[in-house]
């Protein structure tokens, strides 16, 4: 028990620190990331430029950090928006039932039925691409599975004898929601929120990589990877390797933190 708690806390602190420092560093380095220095172009990794430089002499470490920072911010925003949408829609479907439930369940099935990438590309194009296009696209396509989970949970809670009893004992509706419903939904909500984070980052990067997302002058990981494709055959491996690895690293960190949080919050495995 202590091991898992310590382990989870460690991962969450690590992920939180990484998130903050990357966002901060990316913000500070944003100006420098675009600075070209043609005297230093195409340098392989060296002490002055640990990640090397590109064909315009831009430092790849700065570009990668700025790109990750952008990804983390987009990921955080979209994960928060879609988790909140899932909570509201799933909760409303279960609480009201009837046609509200039918409508929300139908929309959920509809959004789930379309492949994510396709939906994000369509929404992104419709919203004029760029940062907001991708953000809206990812946010609008990622709430479905969490909404279903929350709907099921609320339905189950609605029938629970202890809630029926509390209501007949005169506990007010607001207190029922605050003391009972939210308390029971918190583990699913938190786990869903953290696990949505890496998903959102990856989708943002892949849509940008495909050319439907952020614009080329922005230092996004997807842009860096897409550009590096043209230079891989000329032997400039560092252009793709380090940005790619750091993206995988960031995503893994959040996936592992989310998985540990899920195990800790689930009563069946919390004491293992």
């Amino acid at each position: 028990m202590k091991n898992r708690r310590r382990n989870t806390l460690f991962f969450i602190i690590l992920a939180g620190t990484a998130l903050c420092s990357v966002t901060l560093a990316g913000g500070l380095l944003y100006e420098g990331a675009a600075a070209a220095d043609f005297a230093q172009k195409n340098l392989p990794p060296c002490p002055a430029h640990p990640f090397g430089t590109d064909w315009m002499g831009r430092d790849m470490l700065r570009r990668t950090l700025a790109g990750l920072s952008l990804s983390v911010r987009v990921g955080g925003l979209t994960a928060a928006v879609s988790a909140a949408a899932a909570l509201v829609l799933g909760g409303a479907a279960a609480a009201f039932g009837g046609w509200v439930d039918a409508l929300i369940s139908w929309i959920t099935d509809l959004v789930m039925g379309i492949p994510h990438i396709l939906l994000i590309i369509l929404i992104s194009i419709a919203c004029g691409r760029g940062l907001w296009g991708v953000t809206i696209g990812v946010a609008l396509s990622h709430w479905t599975s969490l909404a279903r989970l929350i709907r099921g949970e609320v339905l189950q809670l609605k029938g629970a004898p202890y809630l029926q009893l509390a209501r007949r004992l005169g506990v007010s509706r607001g207190r029922l929601v605050k003391n009972h419903l939210l308390l029971h939904l918190m583990p699913q909500f938190l786990t869903g929120l953290i696990l949505q984070f890496p998903h959102a980052i990856l989708h943002e990067a892949s849509v940008t990589f495909l050319g439907f997302g952020l614009s080329p002058e922005q230092p996004a990981i997807g842009i860096i990877l897409a550009e590096s494709m043209g230079y891989l055959t000329t032997g400039r491996w560092w252009l793709a390797l380090f940005p790619g690895l750091s993206l995988v690293g960031a995503v893994m960190l959040f996936a592992l933190a989310g998985e540990r949080l899920r195990l800790l919050l689930s009563p069946a495995t919390a004491q293992d």
Binding site: P161, Y162, L163, L165, A166, R168, L169, G170, H180, L183
Partner: peptide, 27 residues
Amino acid sequence: CPVQLLWQHPEQAVDPLLRLGTTLHEA
């Protein structure tokens, strides 16, 4: 409600996530 039901499974009649003091004095 003036009519109360004493449920046959007490472990289903209290919220498993709340301390019993909270449950007891909730209403």
